[in-house]
Computed example of a mutant assay.
Amino acid sequence: MDVPAPRRRLGGRGHHRGDGLSLLFAADVPEDVAGVLTATQRPVVTAAFTETASAAAWRTKQSWALVAGADRTISPEVQRFGAARVGVVVELPRASHAVALSEPTRVADLIRDGVRATI
């Protein structure tokens, strides 16, 4: 599938043209919701792709990972690689990058499980 490249980069920011955002980011959410996402998207700070973390919290804190199996923004293989380090992984095979919108109950359950396990 061809996905449109970011429209432009301004001051270290980039964003996708609206005609490809819903396919790339939110393929499994209702069309009206995807339309709102497209209309209200904000440019991503390109430093988000190059900045390094000073420490990995998952090395010292119990963590969880959710793999969105149909994500076209972050490859599910890349997500699985990172999630394997965490130890507790929930995979939603049909979920897009907008998994919090398409599977809100499952995402909330994962968050609640994490909270319960750490208090």
Rank of each mutant, 00 (worst) to 15 (best):
P4V: 03
E103T: 01
R59M: 06
P104F: 02
V44Q: 15
D32C: 03
S54Y: 00
M1P: 10
F49T: 09
L24S: 07
A95W: 01
R42E: 13
P104H: 03
D32Y: 05
A5G: 01
A26D: 04
V67P: 09
Q62H: 14
G14K: 00
R7V: 01
T73S: 09
A100P: 00
V29K: 04
R42L: 13
A53W: 15
S54K: 09
R72T: 00
A34D: 09
L110N: 08
A83D: 08
S75I: 06
E77P: 02
V67A: 08
R13Q: 11
R85K: 11
G20T: 01
R94G: 14
E91G: 07
A34E: 05
L66T: 01
S96P: 02
T38R: 01
R42D: 08
L23R: 05
A84H: 06
L23P: 01
G114V: 03
D28N: 04
G20R: 01
V78Q: 10
V36G: 00
V107M: 09
A84K: 10
V29I: 14
P6K: 02
F49L: 12
E51N: 11
A108Q: 06
G87H: 06
V115M: 13
R42K: 15
S96D: 03
A117W: 09
S22P: 06
A26C: 14
P30E: 13
